[in-house]
């Protein structure tokens, strides 16, 4: 039976350290400013009656995904095998219809080729440190922290003129591993499970009080926030 992956994020466990965002960058070779894993934080009230809220965000892999409906060339699609909302970098024409239609603002556009910093010929301290370009040349990869595993089923580093977004580490899920943001969360606040498998732990987690973002829009998002304060 086909899988239907969804994520839970336990907001009472989440410590707001943003390790998920850093891990995501390592795993998916995203450039500065390109955040597949992001967060909303809001501070309301005035001291001493202050409320601070930190909500980690990512693509919600909606069952009724507006980006999939808006994409004119099926570059954004629902994967029948795993229920994820995925992006085909080879097909994307860069029309940005997906970005305009996404209610969560989690799709980014490559205005330029990423990681240009590593072509820089200037070092931080002359004759002391190497230039970014020298480091890049020595290591022989696009970026020093390049992760070739991302290339398993998606463009390892995307390029100018196309969009990109969270793929829920489908390359890791494919071999039975949790997404990297899940495995690197120090508070173990995250979990990805198969909604189609009645024995999956996700069903137990979803017995907790939970919500999704902008449920009113009918997008049927699949990132569930457990136990909000």
């Amino acid at each position: 039976m086909a899988k239907n992956y969804a994520m839970t994020i336990d907001l009472q466990s989440c410590i707001g350290c943003a390790a998920c965002s850093v891990a995501c960058k390592n795993e998916n070779n995203t450039d500065t400013g390109m955040n597949w894993s992001h967060h909303i934080h809001t501070t309301t009230g005035t001291f001493p009656n202050v409320k601070y809220e930190y909500i980690p965000t990512l693509c919600n892999h909606c069952d009724n995904a507006p980006c999939v409906k808006a994409c004119p060339v099926k570059a954004m699609y629902k994967d029948d095998e795993n229920g994820l909302t995925l992006h085909n970098a080879d097909k994307c024409i860069g029309c940005k219809a997906c970005m305009a239609s996404c209610p969560y603002g989690v799709i980014s556009y490559n205005k330029k080729d990423p990681h240009q910093y590593w072509n820089d010929q200037e070092s931080w301290y002359d004759d002391v440190s190497a230039t970014p370009a020298e480091i890049k040349e020595k290591i022989g990869t696009e970026v020093p922290y390049y992760n070739p595993e991302r290339a398993f089923n998606y463009e390892a580093i995307r390029y100018r003129g196309i969009v990109e977004k969270c793929q829920m580490c489908d390359h890791r899920l494919d071999r039975g591993e949790q997404p990297y943001c899940v495995s690197r969360c120090p508070a173990e606040a995250r979990y990805v499970g198969d909604l189609n498998d009645p024995n999956d732990k996700i069903h137990e987690l979803l017995t907790h009080d939970h919500k999704t973002l902008r449920e009113d829009l009918g997008t049927k998002p699949k990132v569930f926030y457990l136990r909000s304060f």
Binding site: K74, I93, V163
Partner: peptide, 22 residues
């Protein structure tokens, strides 16, 4: 405003009939 105008052929080879833009 298209990032990859060279891929416009996908309008013909990979149409999404749900998309108003198509």
């Amino acid at each position: 405003d298209l990032g990859r105008i060279d891929r416009a052929i996908y309008f013909i080879t990979s149409p999404n009939l749900q998309a108003p833009m198509w």
